[in-house]
């Protein structure tokens, strides 16, 4: 049973079609990547899901129906435009935001110290928010997103201001939330994070869905017979069965001729006495898939996987 069901939503601002016929489902216990270049319609889609904006057409169902005031307490949202009350103490700010999510003072008193400890902000709780670094403010905002134990978590670029240590911390927390059965939508440009975290993605560009499906399926559908090798020897100018040789940073990419399998190329290389330090099937990275799809993406080229 999906927690979020987006069905053919469209939204236009003046002459700009921000979102066109976008549909997808997100289920509990899943981290869902909402990907797309800048200005592709990701934030508009999120705002429609959260009922901040009304779609021109289509519908959204969240936690089994239309958005309501009661459901707002079940949603944790980290918007792209980070915002906290700058001129008040950190703990007061978080307490206020938590009360607006329906938490009682007792519940806040119980949970806030643990979250501040987990995010290493305990020693800063009596500082004004404006005195905190950008990274600290982002962690504080993540606490505000999670403290009320929401069923649906929507986070926009959660790693943007974080150092590697805090990035790992947030990744671990997101994995915990997924294990706890939460529904998570994550917007990001950092494809390596998507590769490590997401179970399913939708790629939108110019307001349209270009790619939608499970990450594994997407990899498989974009997989080729290209291989990557590393050798300290000089390669001959041409290798039988290889259409193109491309030098990467430390690796060499070999594109086989149609019908030639990676195993045959390995045999050829060995038979030619080339000493190999590494040999691997060149699975395309999500970055490559993203660029390929977006560059190719003309209206109507949607690939639903």
């Amino acid at each position: 049973m999906q927690s979020i069901h987006v069905e053919h939503i469209s939204k236009r601002f003046g002459d700009t079609q921000a979102v066109r016929d976008v549909s997808f489902d997100v289920v509990p216990g899943e981290i869902f990547g909402l990907l797309g270049p800048n200005g592709s319609g990701k934030t508009t889609t999120i705002r429609i899901i959260l009922d901040i904006l009304k779609p021109d057409s289509g519908s959204v169902s969240i936690l089994g129906g239309a958005m309501s005031e009661a459901k707002k307490n079940q949603i944790g949202y980290l918007p792209e435009e980070r915002g906290l009350y700058q001129d008040i103490l950190l703990d007061k700010c978080l307490e206020y935001l938590a009360t607006l999510k329906g938490m009682s003072p007792q519940q806040i008193k119980q949970k806030l110290p643990a979250y501040l400890d987990e995010f290493d902000l305990s020693s800063h709780r009596k500082k004004k928010v404006k005195e905190l670094s950008k990274g600290m403010q982002q962690k504080a905002q993540l606490i505000a997103t999670l403290i009320h134990n929401p069923q649906v978590i929507i986070i926009d670029e959660p790693f943007s201001a974080l150092d590697p240590v805090n990035t790992q911390l947030v990744k671990d927390i997101l994995k915990q939330q997924r294990s706890a059965g939460k529904t998570i939508i994550m917007c990001t440009h950092q494809m390596n994070q998507v590769e490590q975290l997401c179970d399913k993605i939708v790629l939108v560009d110019k307001g349209e869905v270009l790619l939608y499906g499970g990450l594994q399926q997407i990899y498989e559908s974009f997989a080729t017979d290209d291989v990557r090798i590393n050798t300290s020897m000089e390669l001959p100018p041409s290798i039988p069965g290889v259409r193109k040789i491309e030098r990467l940073n430390t690796m060499i990419k070999l594109e086989p001729q149609p019908g030639v399998k990676p195993q045959e190329i390995l045999n050829t290389l060995v038979s030619q006495g080339i000493q190999l330090n590494a040999f691997e099937i060149a699975v395309p990275s999500l970055d490559e898939i993203f660029i390929k799809v977006v560059k190719k993406g003309e209206p109507g080229d949607e690939q639903d996987l």
Partner: peptide, 20 residues
């Protein structure tokens, strides 16, 4: 104005209704 300056509008409207 502070809600705008602090960029807290989106947080607020996903927690309370504009009327509240």
């Amino acid at each position: 104005v502070e809600e705008k300056e602090n960029r807290t509008m989106e947080i607020m409207v996903t927690s309370v209704s504009p009327n509240e």
